[in-house]
Amino acid sequence: MKTFWTARRRDTLAGYLFVAPQLAGSALFVFVPLVLVVYYSLHEWNVLAGTFSFIGFSNYSALAEDANLMPVLRATALFSVGLVAINLSLALLLAVLLNQRLRGTAFFRTVFFSPVVVSLVAWTIVWQFLLQDNGGINGALDMAGVDGPNWLRGDTTALISVIAVQTVKNVGLNMVLFLAALQGVPADLYEAARVDGASAWTRFRRITMPMISPTILLTSIITVVGSLQVFAQIAVLTQGGPGTSTTVLVYYLYQQAFQFHHFGYGATLSVLLFGIVAALTVVQWQMRRRWVFHEQ
């Protein structure tokens, strides 16, 4: 049998064995539930009455008639775009600042990263206090002579608040990844450019950006996907209000399924959410060839 177990066959077996736990786990805890969600979405499910009946695609046609859906998708888009843009640019800015030859960058690095390790619910509870009309933020603004808005009660300011709270909480992660990428850019590239008389901005655009573009791709995918999964922050800070200005898709899904007891319709929204996330990721992945350096 020695001839049967060639190095190649043994590798194949090893490969399957190595990925087996992950694959079995994904099948059981990702794909079976996903199929179940699709299955539920074809049903009217009244939890309280204990009824579960097949209704075909009615839940999907209800999507078209749901007057709340457009505002929810709008809020979701605004939130995601705002979060990704602010998070990535702030992370990059911080990384560039910390990449300067300055004393004490380690200290500031620790500071900017620290919210990442604070428990999410604790962090959100604190900001809920700070963002009150008579809370800490407006107190600080007041000292500076500015009359702060009622953050969590205005449509726009509430959305901005949620984005800001989420950004400050997590920007440290992206910052560290950018910082590592920046430090990985070979110094001689900059030297050569300097010799050629390139300005700081040109160097940043022509050398730094392309060199760290794989990191930008990765962080943007993770941040986009993460932005579509924000739940606890909304639940604690605004409960989707005022109006529906901060009701993002995940929160709406939770409301429909768990609060309004429309499990079938909630499942339909889950399918919609999954479709959006998948589509966005495919688009980002396709676009990488256009601008990610290593892929060219």
Binding site: G243, F260, H261
Partner: peptide, 18 residues
């Protein structure tokens, strides 16, 4: 009946009053 949904709809549409 349908209290959670109704309650949420009132809350959202009452917000402009404040």
């Amino acid at each position: 009946t349908g209290n959670a949904e109704l309650s949420q709809a009132v809350r959202a549409s009452l917000d402009p009053l404040w």
